[in-house]
Design a protein around this nucleic acid. Sequence first.
DNA 1: GCCGTTTTCGGCCCGACTGTTTTCAGTCG
Length: 571
Amino acid sequence: MENARIAEIFSEIADLLELKGGNEFRVRSYRNAARTVSELPQRLADLVAEEEDLTGLPNIGKSTADKIREIVERGTCKRLEDLRAEIPEGLTELLQVPQLGPRKASQLYRELEIQSLGDLRQAAEDKKIRDLEGMGAKTEEKILEGIETLASSTGRILYHTAAQYAESLGKLLDGMDAVKQWEVAGSLRRGKETVGDLDILVQADDRKRVAESVAEHDSVVETIGRGEEKMSVRLESGLQVDIRFFDPAAFGSALAYFTGSKAHNIAVRRLAQANDWKLNEYGLFKGENRLAGKTEASVYHRLNLPWIPPELREDRGEIEAAEEGRLPDLITEKQIRGDFHSHTERTDGRESLEEMVEAARDRGYEFLAVTEHSKALSMAKGLDEDDLKAHAEKIREADERYEDIWVLAGIEVDILKSGRLDLDEKVLEDLDWVVASVHSYFKLEEKEMTDRLLAAVHSGVVHCIGHPTGRMIGSRDPVRFDHDRLFEACRDHGVCLEINGQPDRMDLPDTLCKRAREAGVLLALATDAHHHVEFDFMRYALLVARRGWLGKEDVLNTRTVKQLRKHLGSK
DNA sequence: GCCGTTTTCGGCCCGACTGTTTTCAGTCG
């Protein structure tokens, strides 16, 4: 039983309770519990086995703790079974339709016996919905559109993709005289690996003109709503964009408000309430009197907090850390001196060694590790021992030619199913940098996978574990292993964990990053570039690192060549 | 159902927009 499944159960209970018309705060409790569970670094099943007290976890009280134990033992819980018996299957899928919430969904069920998306479409097409109390022709139309949107939407999209749309809209806004300032807020600003929609804040002289221009933008296919304060549009990709207009006096509080996360906002608002103040998107207020709002920092400062970087705003302890003056000094792009994972055309990269090295120099890097695949990945032309020796020689020759950059002769060696490395350790010993990665047998049982990874760490020739969880966002689950044991082993053997910046990997994920840091593990940021343009993926690795609370000291890439040589030499 | 320098009971974030209404409920973020 994985945490994700437990979280799903709590979400389903929340949905069903909502359809039933239950207490909205109880519903919220289940949703909060689902969030806590899904973000929890430890496996609940393990905590239950160890008879840990779960009520110490945020949003988990006695009742929820009991349910967690029940779910771990039985795979489900009575509460869910009872609700399912009471409310027809299919009704929850109606909640997925935009603009259709629990009230209308249950009304549709009660009055028209609608129990599925199919029923809903039929009723809308038959124009039966417009006759219901509180609904009309417009509602019917919205529902049909909502069903279409649902069918074509893919849910959350990669940060990388969302950032491209944001950039394109940003260009439009930059080009308008009426726009005085604009900022992207929401989960994109927080650097989350996936983004559900775009939130853009705009200060403008002529809101109407801005709204018109946005509505006419190439990538906009539909205007969902449009008012004085906000407008919502849908892009060709299905992505929803919310534009909100604010005056300068409220721009900072609005930015904070719409950056979220929701949980962070609630926690900050509680601090305001403790002073009998009110915090909303228009500012921090004492009665009618605005205490702060022009900048984000002014809002935080008035609440006796330092400004909190957006990447930390997840209610994962940042408020307490801010109160106690122990927020981490997060790593920045400028502190990155090199990249620890790249491929060339010798295996599955697309450019020559020289092209890659020169591009790294152009970025101002002081070092670059070239890490081709090993022979187990025959599809990728992986190297055997002799190939590797020859290639390492070639890399060292290149290193001689470029005085201002250290080209590390490296490898990304496969960790085989048994935990053995795919290449003779004698050959690996002569390299400057050895990344060991799992590229096969992703479904091993936790114990077997843990032993497999530990064997690589214990080998004595590995410097870094590549993309440690192996997850592909949206398409492949992370492999299962005992995180704490791997972290401890890495710390004790001086082995780094990689933060791979490929947009669909972003692996190690942020929450595990935070725990690896707490365990004393050193992280290595890397792009896994197969073409020099992918060196830009370092920004995604950086986002993960920042969301994982990493500072300069926690990251190997911040070392000078001299320090790095010393660090690697001492291994 | 959770939670506690206001509290173990009684709160729980709060405002914009839409469509249906003649003052508001539902949905969303």
